[in-house]
Design a protein around this nucleic acid. Structure first.
Length: 611
RNA sequence: GCCCUCGUAGCUCAGUUGGAUAGAGCACGUCACUUCUAAUGACACGGUCGCAGGUUCGAUUCCUGCCGAGGGCGCCA
């Protein structure tokens, strides 16, 4: 586990092994997740069987506890430990069973070549559920060792339209931020917008040509691509405009007051537009998170100086560069990271190094995440390598590129409009919402119009985000309205419906949910036991998702929870059941709804109470 | 040419760091509705885990080599 989570329960401790941090190895006595509880109980037994000499040589033997098809859980660690000790695996597994450490929580027996099958006792699970039900975090509580994390994501360009590529960075980054904060970490969001560079000479001159008022109107209408393209056309066709643009870049970089004022108009109008998109998407980003490329310009000379002082800077073809080992170009020669161009300007490698310095030295980051497309992989490897050579990153401060694949159309080619341009993000979102609206109108005609529009927005946006988040981010994924908006299968609408349906149970029964949180829980039916274990696995699911910065692992968990609840709901009737079964099942329903809502919340997805 | 990522059912995807018989959804077929929301369920069908070796008690997972797809490879960001 990379992130030290603690769990609600009678006592709590941590299991923590971090890439950037030394293994702490402190195990907790009690966790809400029954699998984690097993590990705590088993570790001392495995240590004892291995003996102190083996532990000091090979480390603590891993009990290797996994969910099982043959029981609630299986312990596989006896096989590897037996191999290490040259012992008989079944006999060794039997020693674990005979130790009796699991007797209070589960029954266990040896199976096959040395697996131990474990079945949790209903009383144990009910007790764990009671602890979780009475707490606000439904199992999730803040870490005792919070980190300072910087998450760099979204990053649209000023005077350019946002497209599906920005959707991925924004949705994934937003979810990671929410999960990190839920685990108690201090998170600084940074929206590294493209607000600097040579295109701004051209854009400012175009602004002047249009007149500020007309330009402001054009940009505030959201026609950012049109503005940019007009400027580009003039730049390509007119030598005079091109020359003016070049001079304007010089003025901008020189800090000319009037030029900066015009530049700020462009940035301000774009930022306002971005905010409308973020609001539609329902993500956390605001103006406070804007840290554009311009922010790092004053820091650039310092980067060069410090690299030079460190003796890392070399001159190559007129440019100042650093050669990080292990990178080669097409000819097999060392590949440089260009710090200062031959003409004197800086480029984005320098800017990214300035970022690293700013984030580690000013913000005090322990961990920096870059949610940027997979095509930038080599670039980040080189930047991180140079930052380590310069000592700005080390074993205590980790920078991680969190890459993602591209968005494909149903033809499996990069999603584009018919004319070959990137699809505007707002157009996709609007269509998703209007399709959701039509679906709701069809399925639930009784809903009044205002409610329907609200619900349609939650469903449409949730569907798009869930489709983006629910597959392994590093792979390309197929954007398909029909699939993502379906109410069946692993989709946003299915999960939202699962939640809304539980809410409707309480409405129909005219029962308040809050009092159910202290109702005694009895677990008898297999579906009740399965649901209990699924609910208790929530913190572990969040932890697993964060460990690899993979929101899709949380998606898989939520989907499993929803289907497990469906089975429970099918087999375990609530309405008309005698007490205490009636209250117990309502308590399970309430808890399921709370975990669904919380988990969807961590994905940045609404959970409406009716739909 | 070198490097990175990916390859799992007809389609879209999981697979918890090496565990027992590789799982879902969609599509197709069957069943279940005056019943707590049938907008949710169940059953059936569907697999050479790209190919070939290797490591070991055991490999979709780790290593090597091929095949295929995408991306990257010095002054754009």
């Amino acid at each position: 586990m990379l992130y030290p989570l603690s769990y609600e329960g009678e006592t709590s401790g941590n299991v923590s092994v971090g890439a950037a941090f030394d293994a702490i190895g402190q195990t907790c006595q009690y966790m809400s997740d029954p699998i984690a509880a097993l590990i705590d109980l088993l570790q001392p037994v495995f240590d004892e069987i291995a003996g102190p000499d083996t532990v000091s040589e090979s480390g603590h033997p891993d009990p290797t506890v996994r969910p099982s098809d043959h029981a609630d859980a299986q312990i596989n660690g006896a096989l590897s430990l037996a191999k290490l000790l040259g012992d008989n695996p079944r006999a060794l597994a039997q020693r674990v069973v005979d130790s009796g450490v699991l007797d209070n929580v589960a029954s266990s027996h040896v199976a096959g070549p040395g697996f131990i099958n474990v079945t949790f006792s209903p009383q144990f699970l009910a007790g764990e559920l009671a602890a979780v039900a009475s707490a606000d975090g439904v199992g999730l509580v803040p870490s005792e060792q919070p980190l300072q994390v910087v998450v760099d994501y979204s990053a649209p360009n000023v005077a350019k339209e946002m497209h599906v590529g920005h959707l991925r960075s924004t949705a994934i980054g937003d979810s990671l931020v929410r999960m990190l904060e839920a685990c108690g970490h201090s998170v600084k969001r940074e929206n590294h917008i493209g607000d600097w560079g040579t295109p701004f000479g051209m854009l400012i001159e175009h602004l002047l040509d249009l007149g500020e008022a007309d330009a402001a109107e054009a940009l505030s209408l959201g026609d950012l691509n049109g503005f940019y393209k007009e400027a580009r056309v003039k730049f390509d066709e007119s030598d005079e405009f091109q020359e003016r643009s070049r001079q304007r870049v010089v003025l901008l970089q020189g800090g000319d007051g009037e030029t900066l004022r015009l530049w700020e108009i462009l940035v301000g109008l774009s930022a306002a537009y971005f905010n409308t998109v973020y609001e539609t998407l329902g993500v956390l980003l605001t103006d406070d998170d804007l840290v554009g490329e311009s922010h790092y310009q004053p820091l650039m000379p310092g980067v060069v100086d410090r690299l030079a002082t460190a003796g890392l800077l070399e001159e190559s073809d007129g440019a100042d560069v650093v050669f990080p080992p292990g990178f080669e170009n097409r000819e097999g020669d060392p590949l440089p990271l260009i710090i200062q161009k031959g003409a004197g300007g800086f480029n984005y490698a320098t800017s990214d190094l300035a970022c690293v310095i700013d984030r580690t030295e000013r913000i005090g980051a322990d961990l920096i995440l870059y949610v940027v497309d997979a095509g930038q992989s080599q670039h980040f490897q080189m930047v991180f390598a140079v930052a380590r050579m310069a000592g700005w990153l080390d074993d205590e401060i980790e920078a991680v590129h969190v890459p993602f694949g591209i968005v494909l159309g149903t033809d499996r080619k990069r999603l584009k409009t018919r004319s070959g341009e990137p699809v505007r993000l707002v157009a996709l979102l609007n269509e998703a919402v209007s399709r959701a609206d039509a679906a709701i109108a069809d399925k639930n005609p009784d809903l009044d119009e205002d409610t329907r529009h609200d619900v349609a927005r939650s469903i449409g946006i949730g569907a798009v985000k869930y489709a983006d988040l629910s597959t392994d981010r590093v792979k390309d994924y197929v954007f398909d309205f029909d699939r993502m908006l379906a109410f069946e299968g692993n989709t946003g609408p299915y999960l939202q419906y699962a939640h809304a349906r539980i809410c409707s149970i309480f409405r129909r029964e005219e029962v308040e949910r809050a009092p159910m949180r202290t109702a005694p829980i009895e677990l008898a039916e297999p579906q009740e036991l399965a649901l209990a274990q699924q609910i208790l696995g929530f913190p572990s699911a969040v932890d697993a998702a964060l460990e690899s910065y993979s929101p899709h692992k949380l998606c898989t968990y939520v989907y499993d929870l929803a289907t497990t609840f469906s089975a429970f709901y099918e087999h375990c009737r609530i309405k008309g059941s005698p007490e205490p079964t009636y209250s117990s099942r309502l308590a399970l329903a309430d808890l399921t709804a709370r975990v669904l809502e919380r988990a969807l919340g961590l994905l940045g997805i609404d959970a409406p109470e009716q739909m």
